[in-house]
Amino acid sequence: MRKIYKKYLAQDEIPIYNYIKKRKLVKYFTRDVMAAMVCVGELSNHCPFTEETPFFFSRGESEYPLLFEQSSPFLESVEEGYTFKQFFNRATSLVSPLIHFKTMRNMGHCFISIEYGFKGDNASLTGSLSGLLTSALLSNCEPQTPILIVASKLNLDSSAEGGAAIVTKRELEGHPLLNSNSEAIQFFNQ
C-alpha cells in the first residue's frame, strides 16, 4: 500500500497546476479537490494508472457552504419592505454558476477521472470511510489489482485535506477501519 496525504492551510497556495494537464478544469475545483488532485498526481509518479484502474472517492462533508462566502456581503442586510423574492434573486445573482459544480458531491471523482481517463469500476461517496474501503474491497477485480482510493475534506477554518492511496483487495481484507463511520480522510491522515 502506498499512501499520500496533504493538508493546506487557508493561506497556503495549492500547487495544482503542477499536477494537471486539463488546466481549464481548475476553475471548477474547490480547495479540497485540488488537494486530492495533488495527492493523486504524486501517487501517479510511483504507480502508473490504466484506464481500467478501479477508482473510489469519498469526499468529506463541507464545513461551510461556499454559497455563503460569495453572497455574504448582502445576506445580512435589513431593508424595509424587503421581500423574499427580492432577497432570493439578489442572492442567486451574486453566486457564480461555477458554484453549482463546486457543491456537487461527485465532482472531485469526475475531475480526477477525466484527468487520468479512468473508465473502470468506481463509486463516489460522501463522508463514510467504511463505504470507501468496502467499495474497494468488493471491487470486481483480481486480489492483486491496484485500486485507487481517494478522500478529501474542506474544514471549517478553510484548510483543505486530500489523501490518495493505491491498495489491493488483499491488503484491505480484515482492515480495522472497514467498519468505521468516521470520515474517509481519517484513513489518510492517521
Partner: peptide
C-alpha cells in the same frame, strides 16, 4: 456500516449495486 453514495444520477444505483456485492 452507513454509506452515502453521491454520484449524482447514478448515486442510488451505485448504492444498490454495492449492497448487492456486500
Amino acid at each position: 456500516g452507513i454509506n452515502l453514495f453521491t454520484a449524482a444520477c447514478v448515486a442510488s444505483t451505485q448504492a444498490i449495486g454495492s449492497s448487492y456485492r456486500m
